[in-house]
């Protein structure tokens, strides 16, 4: 499947037939990607779907087995070094230098880009403010909370003022407050015109941040579009979740007629429908049935496309 952006000619990522094989196993299978300058692009998929391998290919960390890949106009992996000058990376796994303070981490990382001097000091001061770490400039890494470490990693990835930022699960493991702060900072970066490419397991995160996204499974792109488009195209607009005594019988006899599609997840019945009013009226007459009505969201699309069974 092609995920293409016809509107704007300027692309920061252009991949054709991107494939990665390990032995007989194909982890990424003939993927086409095209990411526009200035957008936030999401890679979603269950564990083992090929998200991280795709990201690793984009950042030149592993060569594709087949296909063509251009990032920021540079052929990858051939010109990965030139591309890295203009790329920022927030890895999934924390790799801050534990022996250094916050400041030393930034200075050292900057040296890998050949950055030093007064301009760098200025840049670091700005980044510390951006990451809300002014007060922690001389603290050791061990003294930072999970959220602070993530913010430092984000600040570190911006040290070379990159055009494109790759974020592999940027908020995994953070508490809700820390997550909100990261989201806010990512939106600031988008407003500055930077392009973001991120993977996440949080559909809410993708829905809030991503202009466009792909859902990947078994190394292939299943769908591509904006979160709103995907919800509109792939799922009924309303969801009613029902549980309670006597639900099955009631649903088979009464409820079913208003519902386009239904699915069990555990003991809860998920009903997908285009007009919710008649079902809700009927449910109001059955106090023993508990229900929640909400708009369909990206998570419903995700579960519909990739299935509800557990991935490990």
């Amino acid at each position: 499947m092609l995920c293409d952006s016809q509107m704007q000619p300027e692309r920061v990522v252009d991949a054709r037939g991107l494939t990665k094989r390990y032995g007989a196993q194909t982890v990424v299978d003939n993927v086409d990607l095209s990411i526009r300058r200035g957008e936030c692009f999401g890679l979603l998929g269950p564990n083992g779907a090929g998200k991280t391998t795709t990201l690793r290919m984009l950042m030149g960390a592993t060569p594709p087995s087949a296909g063509e890949l251009n990032v920021l106009g540079f052929p990858i992996p051939q010109q990965a070094r030139q591309m890295h000058q203009r790329l920022g990376v927030v890895p999934q796994q924390d790799n801050l230098d534990p022996d250094f303070t916050v400041m030393e981490n930034l200075v050292t990382y900057a040296s890998y880009f050949g950055l030093r001097g007064a301009a760098l000091s200025q840049r670091i001061a700005e980044l510390l403010t951006f990451a809300n770490l002014d007060a922690k400039a001389h603290a050791g890494i061990g003294a930072l909370s999970g959220g602070m470490k993530r913010r430092l990693t984000l600040a570190r990835s911006l040290i070379n003022d990159p055009d494109v930022l790759i974020l592999d699960e940027p908020t995994t493991g953070l508490d809700p407050q820390a997550r909100q702060l990261i989201w806010q900072r990512l939106r600031t970066l988008l407003a500055q015109g930077k392009s973001l490419i991120l993977t996440t397991h949080y559909m809410e995160e993708a829905e809030r941040l991503c202009d466009r996204l792909v859902i990947i499974d078994k190394g292939r792109i299943l769908v591509c579009g904006s979160p709103a488009e995907l919800v509109q195209q792939h799922i009924e607009p309303h969801v009613v979740e029902i549980h309670g005594r006597g639900m099955d019988e009631w649903f088979n006899v009464v409820g079913q007629q208003w519902v386009q599609r239904s699915e069990y997840a555990g003991e809860t019945l998920f009903c997908y429908l285009s007009d919710e009013r008649l079902l809700l009226n009927a449910l109001c007459e059955r106090p023993e049935l508990h229900f929640t009505h909400r708009r369909a969201n990206l998570e419903d699309v995700f579960l519909k496309l990739t299935g509800k069974e557990l991935r490990e």
């Binding site: 960390a61 030139q82 890295h84 000058q85 790329l87 796994q93 230098d97 534990p98």
Partner: peptide
């Protein structure tokens, strides 16, 4: 353990 080299490889260092 610290993945220091992994961090370096995301920069212009090879």
């Amino acid at each position: 353990i610290q993945n220091t080299w992994g961090g370096m490889l995301a920069t212009p260092l090879s």
